[in-house]
């Protein structure tokens, strides 16, 4: 610091030299560089902890049947934390997810620690699906079987590596031929524009194939996406048909009215029978990372006619998802718009 005689004041005043001001600025910049990332990490840590608390609340909901938070970070099992589901003889571990492979051998999943949301800071883990042979098998079906009279909601956080047609994050289905297929629920990417399949996703619920226009919701297709599928039963109409309302939410926002494509194909208008996926039919499990299909149509050379009706002989996985998943929750009730929005708000980065 220098002293100079100030002409106006008539006395000696203190001045900083230019280089001293530069030094002060440099110290300020260095301290900022040290503390801004820590501040950012603290914010991410707070958001992560808020999500952890919220996820635990979801587990305590009696209508929550499956809750995978993907925080295992290693191993071959996704542990279901929905311990208190109001399902007859409920045992949460029946709904654990087993990391599996479509062909023989050990699974080829890759756990990505710090690869989930808020992941750069090491908080949230994710599972990488490779799109060739990886899927998660949930053997328990009792609490996951729904009829058109039931309500349900499936919510997940996924990150698509490739947003191309048919990448299927989850399904409980048996796709076969145009005249022989069955589905309870599934969802898959469909980025194509055209008279059909204009939206980003297609969903199938019971006997309805639905596609959306993506005009209502704009989202980052390569980023983390909250996907929610909700089915609300509307009861039986005068002609005895059970009606229901299907809504897909992307990042907490409903995609809007869908185009029903089921009836556009005369061969399939009445072909998709939900009963075949549950009850006295084949008890097809819910899987993450692919679409369940009939082996007799998709892989006839591996189908054993003498074992007709045996699940592993009838059912195989196709249309595998390539990307990451770091949360999956299933409720046996229709969540409200605001509950789905809250799930998005609590989970967004």
């Amino acid at each position: 610091m220098k002293t100079h005689k100030n002409r106006l004041l008539g006395r000696r005043a203190l001045f900083f030299t230019l280089i001293e001001i530069y030094i002060a600025m440099m110290i300020f910049l260095i301290l900022s560089a040290l503390f801004i990332p820590k501040l950012y990490r603290s914010m991410q840590w707070a958001k992560f902890n808020r999500w952890v608390a919220y996820n635990r609340v979801l587990s305590n909901d009696p209508d929550c049947v499956v809750n995978f938070n993907f925080q295992e970070g290693k191993g071959d099992i996704l542990y279901n934390s929905a311990l208190g589901a109001d399902v007859e003889n409920h045992q949460a571990d029946k709904y654990n997810g087993y990391l599996s492979r479509t062909t023989a051998g050990a699974h080829q999943f890759q756990w990505i620690n710090s690869g989930g949301r808020w992941g750069t800071n090491g908080y949230k883990h994710a599972l990488q699906f490779n799109g060739i042979n990886t899927y998660v098998h949930i053997p328990g079906t009792q609490g996951l079987d729904f009829t058109p009279d039931d309500d349900f909601t499936v919510m997940s956080w996924v990150k698509f590596d490739e947003f191309t047609l048919g990448k299927c994050p989850y399904s409980k289905s048996l796709w076969g031929t145009a005249s022989d297929a069955a589905c309870q629920y599934d969802i898959y990417a469909n980025p194509w524009a055209g008279s059909f399949g204009q939206g980003s996703f297609d969903a199938d619920v019971f006997t309805t194939c639905a596609t959306w226009t993506n005009a209502d919701v704009d989202f980052e297709k390569k980023g983390w996406v909250q996907l929610a599928l909700r089915y609300k039963s509307l009861g039986t109409d005068a002609s005895g048909n059970i009606n229901g309302e299907i809504t897909v939410f992307v990042n907490g926002q409903p995609l809007g009215p869908f185009i029903e494509t089921t009836n556009e194909n005369p061969n399939t208008a009445t072909a998709t029978e939900w009963q075949a996926c549950s009850g006295s039919g084949l008890n097809v499990p819910l899987i993450l990372g692919g679409a369940g299909c009939y082996r007799k149509y998709w892989s006839p050379s591996t189908y054993d006619k003498s074992k007709a009706g045996v699940l592993n002989n009838e059912w195989m996985i196709k249309f595998l998802f390539k990307g990451k998943m770091d949360e999956f929750v299933l409720f046996k009730r229709a969540l409200s718009d605001s509950e789905i929005r809250a799930h998005y708000d609590m989970g967004k980065e």
């Binding site: 469909n190 008279s195 399949g197 297609d202 194909n265």
Partner: peptide
């Protein structure tokens, strides 16, 4: 893109 008549999920999967 899938052909215009690929409307149902099965049609898309066949494509």
């Amino acid at each position: 893109a899938p052909p215009g008549d690929a409307k149902h999920t099965m049609d898309k999967f066949r494509f």
